[in-house]
Amino acid sequence: MNLLPKNEWLDGEDLVGKLMNTFWDDRKMSVDIRDLDDYYEVKADLPGFEKEEISVHYSNDLLSIDAEHTAENEVKDDGRFVRRERSSSAYRRQFVVKNIIEEKISAKFKNGVLTLQLPKADDEEKKNKAITID
């Protein structure tokens, strides 16, 4: 007995699967990476975050951007909560970026946008690295 009409958008995938596939797309940190002459520019959208809630690391050619935010509405406790909400957000993105001058990486955070500049290593710097022999 089919009492409900068949929906085309459910064919081949159940409702939960379809919702979960789009849920994670909406929860990603949006990042733009531009290849400029002397450096790479990385811009990450982090609205609602404070500078102290963001960390950036570069190690072994891997750039990591982490952001974690927790908000709790403070309400006087009269013992009769009908509803009380808390929210927590955590993002992590990682990118392989090679031939960077690590000590010259710079970062700024303004109006919810994290901007990184990753200076490229010159061909001379790559070729003339001295190796100590033990």
Rank of each mutant, 00 (worst) to 15 (best):
K76S: 13
D26E: 08
F81A: 09
I33V: 07
R93E: 14
A107R: 15
E102F: 10
K43V: 01
L63N: 04
L114R: 12
V113K: 12
P119A: 09
R80L: 15
I105G: 05
A130E: 13
E85G: 14
A67K: 02
L63H: 11
A90H: 12
N2D: 15
D77I: 03
A107F: 11
L3K: 14
E52L: 08
G17P: 03
V97Y: 05
D122I: 03
P119M: 09
V56D: 05
N7H: 12
A71G: 06
I100A: 07
S55D: 06
I65H: 12
A121T: 13
D66R: 11
E53P: 07
D37K: 06
E72P: 00
V96Q: 15
R27F: 00
I33D: 03
Y58N: 01
H69R: 11
L10M: 04
N128C: 04
E124F: 15
I105M: 13
D37A: 07
Y39C: 11
D134S: 04
W9F: 13
R80S: 15
F95T: 10
V16G: 00
M29I: 14
L63Y: 10
R93A: 15
F23G: 00
N111G: 04
N73A: 10
T22M: 01
K126Y: 04
R92F: 14
V16S: 00
E52V: 08
E8T: 05
N111D: 15
D11T: 06
K51R: 08
E41H: 04
E124K: 10
K126C: 05
D14F: 01
